[in-house]
Protein backbone atom coordinates (compact mmCIF):
# COMPACT_ATOMS: atom_id res chain seq x y z
CA UNK A 1 0.00 0.00 0.00
CA UNK A 2 0.99 3.64 -0.30
CA UNK A 3 1.34 4.07 3.40
CA UNK A 4 5.01 3.00 3.33
CA UNK A 5 6.20 6.46 4.33
CA UNK A 6 4.22 6.40 7.51
CA UNK A 7 6.06 3.33 8.73
CA UNK A 8 7.37 4.01 12.20
CA UNK A 9 8.65 0.59 13.13
CA UNK A 10 9.50 -2.30 10.89
CA UNK A 11 10.55 -5.56 12.50
CA UNK A 12 12.11 -8.20 10.25
CA UNK A 13 13.16 -11.70 11.16
CA UNK A 14 13.72 -10.83 14.81
CA UNK A 15 15.05 -13.68 16.91
CA UNK A 16 15.64 -13.91 20.64
CA UNK A 17 16.70 -17.22 22.17
CA UNK A 18 17.38 -17.87 25.82
CA UNK A 19 20.10 -20.25 26.91
CA UNK A 20 18.95 -22.78 29.46
CA UNK A 21 20.39 -26.00 30.79
CA UNK A 22 18.13 -27.91 28.42
CA UNK A 23 19.29 -25.97 25.36
CA UNK A 24 18.16 -22.75 23.65
CA UNK A 25 14.53 -21.65 24.20
CA UNK A 26 13.29 -20.11 20.98
CA UNK A 27 11.10 -17.44 22.57
CA UNK A 28 11.02 -15.13 19.56
CA UNK A 29 11.77 -16.92 16.33
CA UNK A 30 11.76 -14.92 13.12
CA UNK A 31 9.11 -12.29 13.85
CA UNK A 32 8.03 -9.77 11.19
CA UNK A 33 5.55 -6.96 11.65
CA UNK A 34 5.00 -3.29 10.85
CA UNK A 35 3.73 -0.34 12.82
CA UNK A 36 2.47 2.85 11.22
CA UNK A 37 2.15 6.34 12.57
CA UNK A 38 -0.83 6.99 14.87
CA UNK A 39 -1.81 3.36 14.69
CA UNK A 40 -1.80 0.45 17.07
CA UNK A 41 -0.59 -3.03 16.32
CA UNK A 42 -1.90 -5.67 18.66
CA UNK A 43 0.19 -8.75 19.38
CA UNK A 44 -2.21 -11.51 20.41
CA UNK A 45 -1.07 -14.77 21.88
CA UNK A 46 -1.46 -17.13 24.79
CA UNK A 47 0.88 -17.27 27.75
CA UNK A 48 4.26 -18.66 26.82
CA UNK A 49 4.02 -17.78 23.13
CA UNK A 50 6.85 -15.27 23.41
CA UNK A 51 4.90 -12.03 23.26
CA UNK A 52 6.51 -10.46 26.34
CA UNK A 53 9.92 -11.62 25.09
CA UNK A 54 9.16 -9.81 21.86
CA UNK A 55 8.65 -6.59 23.84
CA UNK A 56 11.96 -7.17 25.59
CA UNK A 57 13.67 -7.86 22.29
CA UNK A 58 12.40 -4.61 20.76
CA UNK A 59 13.51 -2.58 23.79
CA UNK A 60 16.70 -4.59 24.15
CA UNK A 61 15.95 -5.34 27.78
CA UNK A 62 17.65 -8.69 27.66
CA UNK A 63 18.00 -11.01 30.63
CA UNK A 64 21.41 -12.45 31.37
CA UNK A 65 20.70 -15.78 29.72
CA UNK A 66 19.84 -14.25 26.35
CA UNK A 67 21.56 -16.16 23.57
CA UNK A 68 20.91 -15.58 19.89
CA UNK A 69 19.60 -12.06 19.33
CA UNK A 70 19.45 -10.87 15.74
CA UNK A 71 17.23 -9.60 12.94
CA UNK A 72 16.34 -6.09 11.94
CA UNK A 73 14.35 -3.41 13.74
CA UNK A 74 13.90 -0.31 11.62
CA UNK A 75 12.79 2.80 13.47
CA UNK A 76 11.95 5.15 10.61
CA UNK A 77 15.11 4.82 8.46
CA UNK A 78 17.43 3.57 11.12
CA UNK A 79 18.25 -0.04 11.85
CA UNK A 80 18.48 0.14 15.62
CA UNK A 81 19.83 -3.39 15.88
CA UNK A 82 23.18 -2.08 14.65
CA UNK A 83 23.57 0.37 17.52
CA UNK A 84 25.83 -0.36 20.44
CA UNK A 85 24.16 -0.68 23.83
CA UNK A 86 25.21 2.73 25.12
CA UNK A 87 23.92 4.64 22.08
CA UNK A 88 20.75 2.57 22.21
CA UNK A 89 20.23 3.46 25.85
CA UNK A 90 20.87 7.16 25.24
CA UNK A 91 19.07 7.61 21.96
CA UNK A 92 16.31 5.05 21.73
CA UNK A 93 15.10 3.59 24.99
CA UNK A 94 12.36 5.74 26.49
CA UNK A 95 13.25 8.65 24.21
CA UNK A 96 11.95 7.00 21.03
CA UNK A 97 10.48 3.71 22.28
CA UNK A 98 9.02 3.43 25.77
CA UNK A 99 7.08 0.79 27.59
CA UNK A 100 4.32 0.31 30.10
CA UNK A 101 5.28 -2.99 31.71
CA UNK A 102 2.87 -5.68 32.82
CA UNK A 103 1.18 -4.79 36.13
CA UNK A 104 2.64 -1.30 35.78
CA UNK A 105 0.35 -0.06 38.51
CA UNK A 106 2.36 -2.11 40.99
CA UNK A 107 5.67 -1.13 39.42
CA UNK A 108 5.56 2.47 40.67
CA UNK A 109 8.10 3.43 43.29
CA UNK A 110 6.29 3.55 46.65
CA UNK A 111 8.65 6.12 48.19
CA UNK A 112 8.58 8.63 45.35
CA UNK A 113 5.84 11.15 44.66
CA UNK A 114 3.84 10.51 41.50
CA UNK A 115 4.80 13.85 39.98
CA UNK A 116 8.53 13.18 40.45
CA UNK A 117 8.14 9.73 38.97
CA UNK A 118 6.39 11.00 35.88
CA UNK A 119 8.98 13.77 35.47
CA UNK A 120 12.00 11.52 35.97
CA UNK A 121 12.19 10.03 32.45
CA UNK A 122 12.09 13.54 30.98
CA UNK A 123 14.97 14.63 33.19
CA UNK A 124 17.10 11.59 32.49
CA UNK A 125 16.43 11.01 28.83
CA UNK A 126 15.68 14.52 27.58
CA UNK A 127 18.17 16.36 29.83
CA UNK A 128 15.42 18.66 31.05
CA UNK A 129 15.74 20.75 34.17
CA UNK A 130 13.55 19.76 37.08
CA UNK A 131 11.12 22.64 36.45
CA UNK A 132 10.72 21.88 32.76
CA UNK A 133 10.33 18.19 33.42
CA UNK A 134 7.68 18.86 36.04
CA UNK A 135 5.88 21.11 33.61
CA UNK A 136 5.76 18.44 30.94
CA UNK A 137 4.77 15.89 33.58
CA UNK A 138 1.82 18.08 34.55
CA UNK A 139 0.85 18.44 30.92
CA UNK A 140 0.99 14.69 30.39
CA UNK A 141 -0.95 13.97 33.57
CA UNK A 142 -3.70 16.30 32.39
CA UNK A 143 -3.67 14.45 29.09
CA UNK A 144 -4.20 11.04 30.67
CA UNK A 145 -6.73 12.31 33.19
CA UNK A 146 -4.80 12.28 36.45
CA UNK A 147 -5.82 15.30 38.57
CA UNK A 148 -2.87 17.67 38.94
CA UNK A 149 -3.02 17.66 42.74
CA UNK A 150 -2.01 13.99 42.61
CA UNK A 151 1.46 15.30 41.74
CA UNK A 152 2.38 15.29 45.40
CA UNK A 153 0.82 11.99 46.32
CA UNK A 154 2.42 8.59 46.67
CA UNK A 155 1.38 5.62 44.59
CA UNK A 156 -0.37 3.82 47.47
CA UNK A 157 -2.75 6.76 47.82
CA UNK A 158 -4.04 6.20 44.28
CA UNK A 159 -6.58 3.72 42.96
CA UNK A 160 -5.58 1.06 40.45
CA UNK A 161 -6.92 3.01 37.52
CA UNK A 162 -5.12 6.21 38.51
CA UNK A 163 -1.85 4.31 39.01
CA UNK A 164 -2.23 2.79 35.56
CA UNK A 165 -2.81 6.25 34.13
CA UNK A 166 0.30 7.54 35.90
CA UNK A 167 2.36 4.68 34.45
CA UNK A 168 1.03 5.61 31.03
CA UNK A 169 1.95 9.26 31.64
CA UNK A 170 5.49 8.13 32.54
CA UNK A 171 5.80 6.28 29.25
CA UNK A 172 4.42 9.22 27.27
CA UNK A 173 6.22 12.11 28.95
CA UNK A 174 9.18 11.94 26.56
CA UNK A 175 6.79 11.94 23.58
CA UNK A 176 8.24 8.74 22.11
CA UNK A 177 7.46 7.41 18.64
CA UNK A 178 6.42 4.03 19.92
CA UNK A 179 4.90 2.91 23.21
CA UNK A 180 4.82 -0.78 24.02
CA UNK A 181 1.93 -1.71 26.30
CA UNK A 182 2.29 -5.12 27.89
CA UNK A 183 -1.15 -6.30 29.13
CA UNK A 184 -2.07 -2.76 30.21
CA UNK A 185 -5.52 -3.54 31.56
CA UNK A 186 -5.44 -7.15 32.70
CA UNK A 187 -5.40 -6.37 36.42
CA UNK A 188 -8.13 -3.74 36.30
CA UNK A 189 -11.87 -3.80 36.79
CA UNK A 190 -14.23 -3.79 33.84
CA UNK A 191 -15.18 -0.13 34.08
CA UNK A 192 -11.62 1.05 34.74
CA UNK A 193 -10.41 -1.10 31.88
CA UNK A 194 -12.92 0.48 29.52
CA UNK A 195 -11.98 4.00 30.56
CA UNK A 196 -8.23 3.27 30.11
CA UNK A 197 -9.07 1.92 26.65
CA UNK A 198 -11.04 5.10 25.92
CA UNK A 199 -8.01 7.08 27.00
CA UNK A 200 -5.63 5.16 24.76
CA UNK A 201 -7.90 5.59 21.76
CA UNK A 202 -7.79 9.32 22.42
CA UNK A 203 -3.99 9.34 22.92
CA UNK A 204 -3.51 7.53 19.64
CA UNK A 205 -5.27 10.35 17.83
CA UNK A 206 -3.95 13.31 19.80
CA UNK A 207 -0.26 12.49 20.18
CA UNK A 208 2.17 11.55 17.46
CA UNK A 209 2.53 8.13 19.00
CA UNK A 210 2.04 4.59 17.82
CA UNK A 211 1.21 1.74 20.14
CA UNK A 212 2.20 -1.89 20.31
CA UNK A 213 -0.37 -3.60 22.50
CA UNK A 214 0.57 -7.01 23.81
CA UNK A 215 -2.34 -9.00 25.19
CA UNK A 216 -4.05 -12.35 25.47
CA UNK A 217 -7.48 -10.79 25.78
CA UNK A 218 -8.93 -10.78 22.28
CA UNK A 219 -12.10 -8.88 23.09
CA UNK A 220 -10.22 -5.98 24.69
CA UNK A 221 -7.57 -5.97 21.99
CA UNK A 222 -10.20 -5.11 19.42
CA UNK A 223 -10.80 -1.88 21.31
CA UNK A 224 -7.51 -0.41 20.13
CA UNK A 225 -6.33 -2.45 17.18
CA UNK A 226 -5.61 -1.10 13.72
CA UNK A 227 -3.45 -4.09 12.89
CA UNK A 228 -3.21 -7.51 14.44
CA UNK A 229 -0.32 -9.95 14.66
CA UNK A 230 -1.06 -13.39 16.07
CA UNK A 231 1.82 -15.16 17.79
CA UNK A 232 2.05 -18.87 18.36
CA UNK A 233 5.05 -20.71 19.81
CA UNK A 234 7.49 -17.87 19.17
CA UNK A 235 6.38 -17.12 15.63
CA UNK A 236 3.95 -14.70 14.05
CA UNK A 237 1.42 -16.86 12.23
CA UNK A 238 -0.85 -14.15 10.90
CA UNK A 239 -0.64 -10.42 10.22
CA UNK A 240 -3.68 -8.49 9.14
CA UNK A 241 -5.57 -5.27 9.53
CA UNK A 242 -8.04 -5.43 12.38
CA UNK A 243 -11.12 -5.07 10.27
CA UNK A 244 -10.55 -8.11 8.14
CA UNK A 245 -8.99 -10.09 10.99
CA UNK A 246 -11.92 -9.83 13.39
CA UNK A 247 -14.32 -10.47 10.57
CA UNK A 248 -12.56 -13.46 9.07
CA UNK A 249 -9.33 -14.76 10.59
CA UNK A 250 -7.26 -16.88 8.18
CA UNK A 251 -4.85 -19.07 10.12
CA UNK A 252 -6.48 -22.11 11.75
CA UNK A 253 -5.00 -21.01 15.08
CA UNK A 254 -6.49 -17.51 14.81
CA UNK A 255 -9.74 -19.17 13.94
CA UNK A 256 -9.67 -21.40 17.00
CA UNK A 257 -8.61 -18.51 19.19
CA UNK A 258 -11.51 -16.35 18.02
CA UNK A 259 -13.92 -19.24 18.51
CA UNK A 260 -12.76 -19.63 22.11
CA UNK A 261 -13.85 -16.13 23.14
CA UNK A 262 -17.08 -16.17 25.14
CA UNK A 263 -19.46 -13.64 23.61
CA UNK A 264 -21.69 -11.40 25.60
CA UNK A 265 -24.11 -10.39 22.89
CA UNK A 266 -24.27 -13.59 20.90
CA UNK A 267 -25.26 -17.05 21.96
CA UNK A 268 -22.70 -19.07 20.03
CA UNK A 269 -21.10 -21.71 22.20
CA UNK A 270 -17.37 -21.05 22.52
CA UNK A 271 -14.98 -23.82 21.52
CA UNK A 272 -11.68 -24.70 23.11
CA UNK A 273 -8.44 -25.74 21.48
CA UNK A 274 -7.43 -29.28 22.37
CA UNK A 275 -3.85 -30.04 23.33
CA UNK A 276 -1.13 -27.69 24.46
CA UNK A 277 1.32 -25.37 22.75
CA UNK A 278 4.65 -27.07 22.02
CA UNK A 279 7.72 -26.55 24.15
CA UNK A 280 9.93 -23.78 22.79
CA UNK A 281 12.96 -25.75 23.84
CA UNK A 282 12.57 -28.22 21.03
CA UNK A 283 9.75 -27.00 18.82
CA UNK A 284 8.43 -29.50 16.28
CA UNK A 285 9.68 -29.22 12.73
CA UNK A 286 7.24 -27.93 10.16
CA UNK A 287 4.21 -25.99 11.30
CA UNK A 288 4.24 -25.56 15.09
CA UNK A 289 0.46 -25.68 15.32
CA UNK A 290 0.05 -28.89 13.32
CA UNK A 291 -0.60 -31.20 16.31
CA UNK A 292 -3.61 -29.16 17.38
CA UNK A 293 -4.79 -28.15 13.93
CA UNK A 294 -8.12 -29.49 12.63
CA UNK A 295 -7.05 -28.87 9.03
CA UNK A 296 -3.71 -30.68 9.16
CA UNK A 297 -2.49 -32.40 6.00
CA UNK A 298 0.75 -33.94 4.74
CA UNK A 299 2.41 -30.67 3.81
CA UNK A 300 2.30 -29.46 7.41
CA UNK A 301 5.39 -31.47 8.32
CA UNK A 302 7.42 -28.99 6.31
CA UNK A 303 8.08 -25.43 7.45
CA UNK A 304 5.16 -23.35 6.11
CA UNK A 305 6.03 -20.23 4.10
CA UNK A 306 4.59 -16.82 4.92
CA UNK A 307 2.05 -16.19 2.20
CA UNK A 308 0.80 -12.78 1.16
CA UNK A 309 -2.89 -13.57 0.82
CA UNK A 310 -4.22 -10.13 0.15
CA UNK A 311 -2.99 -6.55 0.43
CA UNK A 312 -1.32 -6.32 3.84
CA UNK A 313 -2.51 -9.76 4.91
CA UNK A 314 0.08 -12.40 5.58
CA UNK A 315 -0.41 -15.88 6.94
CA UNK A 316 2.08 -18.62 7.73
CA UNK A 317 0.12 -21.67 6.64
CA UNK A 318 0.24 -24.24 3.85
CA UNK A 319 -3.51 -23.89 3.27
CA UNK A 320 -3.00 -20.59 1.50
CA UNK A 321 -0.12 -21.52 -0.79
Amino acid sequence: MEKQNDLVLKVRNLRLYFNTRGGPVQAVDGVDFDLRKNEATVIIGESGCGKSSLAKAILRLLPRNAGTYDGEIWLHDMNIMNMDDETYRKEIRWKRISMVPQAAMNALNPVMKIGDQVAEPAMIHMNMSKEDATKSAVRMMEHVGVPVDFLHRYSFELSGGMRQRSALAMALVTLPDVVILDEPTSALDVLTQASIMNLMKRMKKELETSFILITHDIATSSELADNVAVMYAGQVVEVSDAHRFFHQPLHPYSHALMASVPRLRETIEPEFITGQPPSLLNPPTGCRFKDRCPKRFDKCDEEPPTVLVDVDRKVKCWLYV
Binding site: L191, A194, S222, A225, A242, V261, L264
Partner: peptide, 22 residues
Protein backbone atom coordinates in the same frame (compact mmCIF):
# COMPACT_ATOMS: atom_id res chain seq x y z
CA UNK B 1 -25.97 -0.92 31.90
CA UNK B 2 -22.51 0.51 32.47
CA UNK B 3 -20.97 -2.92 33.07
CA UNK B 4 -22.52 -4.26 29.90
CA UNK B 5 -21.44 -1.22 27.93
CA UNK B 6 -17.87 -1.65 29.14
CA UNK B 7 -17.60 -5.33 28.17
CA UNK B 8 -16.70 -5.82 24.55
CA UNK B 9 -16.99 -8.61 22.03
CA UNK B 10 -14.20 -8.90 19.48
CA UNK B 11 -15.08 -6.49 16.71
CA UNK B 12 -12.85 -4.12 14.75
CA UNK B 13 -15.43 -1.34 15.04
CA UNK B 14 -14.74 -1.19 18.77
CA UNK B 15 -11.64 0.84 18.01
CA UNK B 16 -13.74 3.62 16.52
CA UNK B 17 -16.04 4.34 19.44
CA UNK B 18 -15.52 5.96 22.81
CA UNK B 19 -17.50 4.00 25.38
CA UNK B 20 -19.69 5.75 27.91
CA UNK B 21 -18.25 5.00 31.30
CA UNK B 22 -19.65 6.46 34.52
Amino acid sequence: HALLEASSDPNADNALVQREIP
